[in-house]
Simulated assay, not measured.
Amino acid sequence: MEEYHFQVRWGDTDAAGIVFYPNFYKWMDEATHEFLTKIGSPSSKLYTEQQIGVPLLEATCKFMSPLFFEDHVVVQSTVKELHNKVFKIQHVFVKGVKTVAEGYEIRAWTSFKGKAKAYPIPEDIRRKMMQQTETVEG
C-alpha cells in the first residue's frame, strides 16, 4: 500500500463547502501516479523514455462521508488485481481514522509508439505491484 496525502482546497468545494464529487476521481488519478512514482516508475519518465502510459478504462467511487475545505486526507492505494496488461488499483480515502470514500480504477499498460496498444506489464514492475496484490490470470 502506498499513501498519497493532500489537503482539500477551496476550489475543490461547492457552494455548500462540501467537496464536489468529481474531485475524488481527480485524487484517485493523482494517487495512481503517486503510486507509480513510489514504486520507481513515474508516469512522466515512463512516457518520455518509453512512450508508455496507463490510460483509464474504468473508475468508480463510493462516498460515505463528506469532506470540507482544509480537511487533511490520506488516500491509501493498493493494486488489487494484476492481469497481463491491465491492473486494478483500489483507493481508500481516510480523514483521521475514518474512511470517507472508497473507489478503484482499472488501467491498461499502454504503448503510445504509433497507434496506442496495450502491452504486457514488465516483470520488474509487476513484482513491485505484486507485493500486496492478488495476481489474476488473463
Rank of each mutant, 00 (worst) to 15 (best):
Y119R: 12
A108N: 01
K45L: 12
Y104M: 05
P55Q: 11
T13E: 07
E2I: 11
H91T: 06
A116F: 02
Y119Q: 15
Q50S: 14
K95N: 07
T37D: 12
Y25R: 02
P55V: 15
S111H: 06
V136E: 00
S77T: 13
P42A: 10
M28V: 01
T37V: 00
K128M: 01
D71A: 09
F6V: 10
G103K: 05
I18G: 02
E102G: 04
T99P: 04
V136W: 02
M130W: 01
K45N: 03
F87N: 00
F68A: 09
W10C: 09
W27A: 11
I39M: 04
R9Y: 11
K45G: 02
T78G: 05
Y21L: 06
Q51V: 12
D124F: 05
C61S: 07
V8S: 03
K85V: 05
P120T: 00
V75T: 03
G17W: 06
D29A: 09
F6D: 10
G138C: 05
Y104L: 08
A108T: 04
E123Y: 02
I125Q: 01
D29K: 00
E58S: 12
F24M: 09
E34N: 11
L82Y: 03
E49T: 11
F63E: 05
P22N: 06
V100M: 11
T99W: 04
V92S: 11
M64W: 06
A118H: 02
V100A: 08
W27T: 02
W10R: 01
M129S: 01
A59F: 04
Y47V: 09
H83K: 13
L82H: 04
K88Q: 07
F68T: 08
T99N: 07
I18Y: 00
K95D: 00
Q90Y: 05
K80C: 04
D29I: 00
L36P: 01
I39S: 10
T78C: 10
T13Q: 07
M28L: 14
A116M: 09
E102R: 14
T60D: 13
M28P: 05
E102S: 10
K45V: 13
R107H: 00
E30Q: 14
E105T: 15
L67K: 05
F35K: 07
W109V: 01
V73K: 10
M130Q: 14
G17A: 09
C61V: 10
V74T: 13
K117Q: 15
P55S: 09
S41R: 11
R127P: 00
M129F: 00
F68G: 03
A101Y: 05
V74D: 08
Y25S: 08
M28D: 10
S77G: 08
H91K: 07
T110N: 02
H33C: 06
E123K: 10
W109P: 00
E49P: 09
E58Q: 11
K62A: 10
Y21Q: 07
A118Q: 08
T48N: 14
V92A: 13
S77A: 13
D124E: 14
E70Y: 04
P120L: 08
D12H: 12
L82W: 02
Q7A: 12
A101T: 00
K88M: 02
A15H: 07
C61E: 04
P42T: 07
